[in-house]
Amino acid sequence: MTDASADVVATTSRWSPRVRRIMGFLGVLVVVVVIWELYKVVGKALGGVVPGTELRLRPPPDDRIMPHTWDVVLQLFRPVRRNGELTVLLLGKAALFTLREAFVGFVVGGLVGFGLGVAFVRSTLAERAFMPYVVASQTVPIIAIAPMVVVWGGKLDIPQWLSVAIIAAYLTFFPVTINTVRGLRSPAPTAMEMMRSYAASPSQVLWKLQVPAALPYIFTALKVSATASVIGAIVGELPAGFRDGLARALLEFSQQFNAEKLLAAILMSAIAGILFVGIVTWFEHRLVAAAHRQE
């Protein structure tokens, strides 16, 4: 085995790719947990400073700021405050709230993006007239200014959740438009000639050839957009006034300096993101899998 890629081939044959990916993920997770706990042990032994100096270790290894990994998980099943509801319930509600905003924007943005993509492929005139605006719209880094957009929306009497949904829609429509255009143009020239030889109508060409061919492209965009719209929703929730949602939980627990609750909230944010992309991927497998999965 002089070559690394040969090792990869050797290890791949034992399990199915899916199992290997899950095992790899869990493996890295275990490594992260071990490093985390080792760092705490060693850090405490060193008295929380870099040896031979007065410099404090960052992150500090004490339990208050860097709790044990298991304490974070256990925190989920403890009440948020005395006699309060379980942390996992509170965070679950917050995650649902954030996901709902993200989802509304995601669906609207996805439909607009698909519609624009179809229009652009059908009419070069439409593409020439509007594509520059679509591209120009992306010169505004909306994630970076999401809180401002929400404040601004408040001034215009737009409800906060709607502003956040608009941000999510904005983040979704562009990749979906671009990838819809690419996907609709992806069939081979001979496939288009074939449809022409059948004297197929434009809508038959669209629905029987171009859209099925575009699905993998569209889903690639949707998966990127799903993550982006969750990020957009969290960042958009930052301005004061939001009572629900993940951003509130993150900010509150951070200000309380309660690392266990904060890390639990981060964990829930991660789960929310993975869940959203997971749902999109599930639909992708339903719609695209049979055709495009080759094992």
Binding site: A191, E193, M194, S197, A199, K208, P212, A213, A291
Partner: peptide
């Protein structure tokens, strides 16, 4: 007329049967 190209130009997401049915569907 029917046409056959150098590449089979079959639609991956359709079964063999559905591919053969495609022109009939369009008609």
């Amino acid at each position: 007329y029917g046409i056959v190209f150098q590449q089979p130009t079959l639609l991956d997401w359709r079964t063999v049967r559905a591919n053969v049915e495609l022109p009939l569907e369009i008609m």
